[in-house]
Computed example of a mutant assay.
Amino acid sequence: MTVLPWIGPPQMAEQNLSHRLDALAELVKIGRLHEETKTAAGFSKSLLDDSDAVLRRAGERLRLSGNHTVVALAGGTGSGKSTLFNALAGATFSQPGVTRPTTRHVHACVWGMQGAAPLLDWLGVQRRHRYARASALDSGESALDGLLLLDLPDHDSVVTASMAAVDRLSKLADMLVWVLDPQKYADASVHNRYLIPLAGHAAVFTVVLNQIDLLPEDQVKDCENDLRRLLDAEGLADTPVLPVSARTGAGVEELRELLVEAVSANRAAGDRISADIDSVAGGFDVYAGPQVAPDAALASLAAATGYELSAPVPGDAGSARPPWELSEDDALAEPGRPPWEDATPDG
């Protein structure tokens, strides 16, 4: 029997992603049954809740536009995030502050609005803060067709709702671009709350060192190298660092090319979901064993729930196969409705 190999996030095919979601949903179902019946020690509740959240977000995102790539610009007060957003959008859509540069609302610029409205509703972007690049004057922007660019509120705002919006949208975006500045690039609150938890999301995560125009040329490289050292020490060695000046335009074209590549590949959404699965899948490793529960526990669980559960037969490799190890016949079989497709926007 040929077993299909697991393929890493950058090469994840849509069918493999569905199989991984199915496998995670099966683990959650087993864990919830143990919770209900108390027949055997099961998975931790926090692990099951986190897995449920991943399945729900994945089901909601995969139902929405597959032709758009959601890229979120995140950063702190005064990092120049909104100025960078406007430089990429080619217009002053998100008005930067003057005396106190802050962003309080989520702004969105969409290249190609068709099919984007439900996605914008799901992201919670107010209609008055939605902008479109769809006129005849935007013909030079065709390479970005399908990009949905978000300017997030400041993560360090004194407004509680702003921080909550960043926490929520950083989980929903297909790709994250974190904008740092020379003064606060080493801020522990940024690294501990946002950057370190994203260590497994290198394929959909980029760091921008903005405002390099404020530094002498010889100090730009020193600042970039120090930021690189911090990220490497935090497990983010594969995360690119782009020195940029949104005000002068230096480095903006390199960032634009990165976005063009992400949009043209059109796989950021799948890569993000795959990375989210990886972030919770490791929590199940400590429960690995030859079978889910002893025979007596399985029999008791089956009697209490009506589910036909059986322990693997010794020597029967087929029955002992984990659900994510699929044979070629399994892959070609007509699937039923996957459990993770039962997700709805309201939970």
Score class of each variant (00 low, 15 high):
Ala134Ile: 09
Leu236Phe: 10
Leu332Thr: 11
Val70Tyr: 06
Pro345Cys: 10
Gly270Met: 09
Ser51Ile: 05
Glu341Gly: 00
Gly8Ala: 14
Gly336Ala: 07
Ala58Asn: 02
Asp330Ser: 09
Ala343Met: 08
Leu149Arg: 10
Ala186Gly: 07
Ala233Ile: 00
Val159Met: 09
Ala304Thr: 10
Met163Ile: 01
Gly97His: 07
Ala199Pro: 02
Phe205Ala: 13
Pro10Cys: 01
Asp346Ile: 03
Gly80Cys: 07
Val110Ala: 13
Pro335Thr: 12
Trp122Cys: 02
Ile196Gln: 12
Asp276Phe: 03
Gln211Glu: 06
Pro335Cys: 12
Ala233Pro: 00
Met1Ile: 06
Asp330Met: 07
Ala203Ser: 13
Arg247Tyr: 09
Gly318Tyr: 11
Pro182Gly: 06
Pro153Val: 07
Val244Gly: 12
Ala320Arg: 13
Arg228Ala: 12
Ser319Ile: 05
Thr305Leu: 01
Gln291Lys: 14
Lys45Arg: 14
Asn225Cys: 04
Val241His: 04
Leu195Cys: 02
Leu255His: 12
Tyr185Glu: 06
Ile212Tyr: 10
Ser279Pro: 01
Leu4Ser: 12
Ser170Gly: 04
Glu257Trp: 02
Gly289Ala: 14
Leu144Thr: 09
Thr92Pro: 00
Asp222Leu: 13
Ser162Trp: 00
Glu224Tyr: 08
Tyr185Phe: 15
Arg256Gln: 15
